[in-house]
Write a protein that binds this DNA or RNA. Structure first.
Lengths: 170, 170, 170, 170
DNA sequence: TTTT
DNA sequence: TTTT
């Protein structure tokens, strides 16, 4: 039985521009690292402390991926909703490695841009300023087992293509 | 403006069997009330206290609605994820009334059954015991503005049909 | 038994400056309305459509309330996490009314400022620009029934003071 | 930088009884693995497929830890809310390893038992049946940077004690 | 290693 | 109106 929920909600800033990888089957995944930070005052020293957590986000949803490619860059602040997934891979020496990622599947996940302009140096042109359009700034896709059988998806969980599995992930 | 999130997550028990209403256009909405409770010890009296909050859940998503009709009943424990929506209506005397509901739209929302058997007395037949099937117990649908224009949805927010707007809601 | 969850997560913009109300017992509540919006393309007309939902947020947590008073204003973008609560009250004519609010209790709830500068016209002085300090921008407080009996709270659910109950809420 | 959110919400079943580890300073962490599952029908083969994700949950909150020790066992169904945290450690060969965990910090996190009785065979005594008490089944603690300086917490992020850092985690 |  |  299922009866389970696997949900991650993050608000943070991209550590670098998104990267896109294409699969042999025509699919694509867009990925980026996202920083979330905690601040507190150290009771002993009285100093301010900060700890940053880095999350690896993987977007398989086509429309959200397109949005991410077009509008997100290093420094962008986003709301991301996805699921936790741990992937096993081998490094060059053949050692088993595990990487846990926040995955926005083909029919699930949400991305909302929160309006902080990134700090990308160069290109991107005059664009980048109009991402607050209706067609772009919000992606929210869902899919699950209860779907009757329409054309809107096959419910297959997102998975790395085999060739991607060979890469070092993070 | 975009850049917003509107999400409600509830785990609670149905106060009564779900009700279904059909629209003229063939659509359907399944609704139920859901109880969430808080318990605490009153510091003054030392007595145990409990406060129950009742939520009005409205399901427009077809597959989730079907699941709710088939498997949920009074007492069922569920995880529900939807959005907050306030509806205006008039009572018999013409007074304006507002009702806030947890809405699972046509392409958004999640319902997960959590395995507490209800206590429906009668009918339901031999059924009700097999709701733990893969096709049924989980509904998770999403839709949003970033969708490019595929066949998987029109992105129109769920809305009450006009004839339903005339009814007293809760 | 409890075994329930009552959680609301919103990202949106304040519709007006926060308002503070003091209670006879020394307590305080800070409230504001928060807008969340959906955008979509109407399939029939091909026009862009937008629907805004307004949420009534009530902050009983002292530290979060102080943060809201100091740093939030009309237009500020925030992440808010609280619980759903419906309050009954009577209008001047003695009619029963119900208002559903997003409540950040004394020991529960989160507020995160998301960096959109508000559009408050006047005062606020040179301030308002430094809210991104560590001591201010994040409030996250929790409390619940499992608490053993420390000094950190009484677990009593947040409630409107009686004199507040007489007011029109929203 | 502040203005961030790091939240994980899981509903799943414990893969084994919780384990407790004590620190030199008197602290304690209770941990368990939690399974979440997805089911779908493979479009190609028409077969039912299932994929299970395993999550490593670490509870530093004292009251929630106590609840987990007393009432949770292999098979228990729970709602867990915590934050994502990746820890670096070295295996016996001195290789760097990273483990991502769902952490319920000292002043943050929620655990709600969802009523599925576990199947622990042995000990546990006559207990285990009364976990549905008000003082136990719900833990919800929060803490964050906006806290003014009361006695209710120091805001220090949960961290593994050094001796624990030497252990293989998962 | 869970659950169905 | 649920649940314990």
């Amino acid at each position: 039985m299922a009866g389970s929920v696997n949900k991650v909600i993050l608000v943070g800033n991209l550590g670098k521009d998104p990267e896109s990888r294409s699969f042999a089957n025509g699919g694509k995944v867009v990925s980026f690292t996202l920083a979330t930070s905690e601040n507190w005052n150290d009771k002993a020293s009285g100093e301010k402390r900060e700890k940053t957590e880095w999350h690896n986000v993987q977007i398989f949803n086509e429309n959200i991926a397109r949005t991410a490619e077009q509008y997100l860059k290093k420094g962008s602040k986003v709301y991301v909703e996805g699921k936790l997934q741990t992937r096993k891979w081998q490094d060059q020496s053949g050692n088993d490695k595990y990487t846990t990622e926040v995955v926005l599947e083909r029919f699930n996940g949400t991305l909302v841009m929160l309006g902080e302009r990134g700090e990308r140096g160069g290109s991107s042109g005059g664009g980048g300023g109009d991402w607050n359009q209706d067609s772009a700034p919000r992606g929210n896709f869902g899919g699950g087992g209860a779907r009757g059988g329409g054309t809107s998806g096959d419910g297959r969980p997102a998975a790395f293509d085999s060739d991607l599995d060979d890469d070092v992930p993070f």
